Simulated scan of single mutants.
Amino acid sequence: MELEVRHLRVLCAIADTGSLHKAARQLGMSQPSLTTQLRRIEHALGGQLFTRERTGCRPTPLGRVVLSRARPLVTEMRALVSETKAAAARAVEGPQLRIGSTASRAIPGWLRKLRGRLPGTEISLQMDVSANALLRMVAAGQLDVAFVHEVEGCPLRLPETLRRRVLLDREPQFISLAADHPAADRPVVRLSELAEDRWMVDPTVDGEWDGLRRVLIAAGLNPRVLHGDYHTAASLVATGEVVALCQPTSRARADMAVRPLHGDPLGVRLLVAARTEDELNAVYGELDAAYWEAAGQSPAYTEWLLQAGETRGTPGETRGTPDGTLVPATR
């Protein structure tokens, strides 16, 4: 048996997911077929590449050696194929810009600004809850740029071939709760005031559950937790069924309040990634402007930004623009 790129792709998928089941699903094949494939590869190389443990699959020393050579080859082959297809498509259809993003209130403004500056460019958007999945798609040439968030304490796996730029080093996470919740009367909510509430978190968002769990444990809380998606969460929050973390740019509603948490216990880093600096430069300015435009439309976040500039010893950290939006004083 001669090793091919598809075999190396199998090894990388198993290592990245840490599970034969997840790797099979990612590759679009059955787990038994993947197991058979792995055995053939190990037989061809003359040694075991992964050990199965209760927590998943881990590379053996031999597996780590093979993976160190396999990953660059797989990445380069994906990029070659994707970039060739993209170049062929652009030659026929004209310029394209393929954007990937995790959820953000800045997206509509970003797209609007890009379309205004790039008339004639076909701009597509792919949303995903997994920042790591989007970064892999950029590395593989399936997307041109990705705007993602990295939960504090849960670093993303940024492919070595990508360039990145940090939009905001730490964005605080706020709490959304029913408008008639007792804590909603306060400008800032303490975690202890939510000790009896049921929390909702989307475990498919990279790092989200781990980050929240760490914060709750540090606060000495062990609340009931409901796993679900954040579209459903908004409805449940409004009826008082749950409370949930939210982005500070989220807007309050008549039936739902958005408040900062005392001490800002959890934050995320916002970053944009692309394969080249030119691709970053092509989109960053519009994203930066769109983010601060969205920030200025959230009263709770606007107040937090102003207070942060005063209480953290950095007066002028934010400044207002003529239209009332907020932008950083220095970049």
Rank of each mutant, 00 (worst) to 15 (best):
S19K: 01
D202V: 09
A140Y: 05
R64T: 03
T55R: 15
E152P: 07
R98E: 13
A133L: 13
L261S: 04
L80F: 11
H7T: 05
R52I: 04
N132G: 15
P265F: 10
L245T: 03
P315R: 00
T321E: 12
V5L: 14
P32D: 12
L118M: 14
P108W: 09
R98P: 06
K22V: 02
L177F: 09
P187T: 01
R214P: 02
R71H: 06
F147S: 08
A87T: 13
P59D: 08
H7C: 02
C246W: 01
A178R: 13
E93I: 01
T84W: 11
A183H: 10
P203Y: 11
L125W: 10
L38V: 13
A282G: 12
R117Y: 06
L125Q: 06
W304Y: 14
G240V: 01
V10N: 03
F147V: 10
S192L: 03
V201T: 12
A238N: 04
R71D: 01
T75Y: 04
L266C: 12
Q126H: 11
L97E: 09
A179M: 12
S250C: 05
W110P: 02
A86G: 14
Q173E: 15
L266D: 11
N132M: 02
V66K: 10
F50K: 01
V225D: 05
G47A: 14
L118C: 08
S82W: 08
L167T: 04
Q126C: 03
R186A: 15
L97V: 07
P155A: 10
L245Y: 07
V242N: 07
G316W: 00
V74C: 09
R136G: 13
I41K: 09
R64I: 03
G116R: 03
V129G: 08
H231W: 06
L111G: 03
R170P: 04
W292H: 15
L177D: 04
R163G: 04
T75M: 09
P108C: 12
Q247A: 15
L216V: 07
R157F: 06
S250H: 14
M137P: 03
L168Y: 09
G141W: 07
L245W: 07
N132A: 15
R157I: 01
L73G: 03
V145F: 13
R269S: 13
V166D: 07
A183V: 06
S250F: 11
G47I: 06
I99P: 09
T55Q: 14
E208A: 15
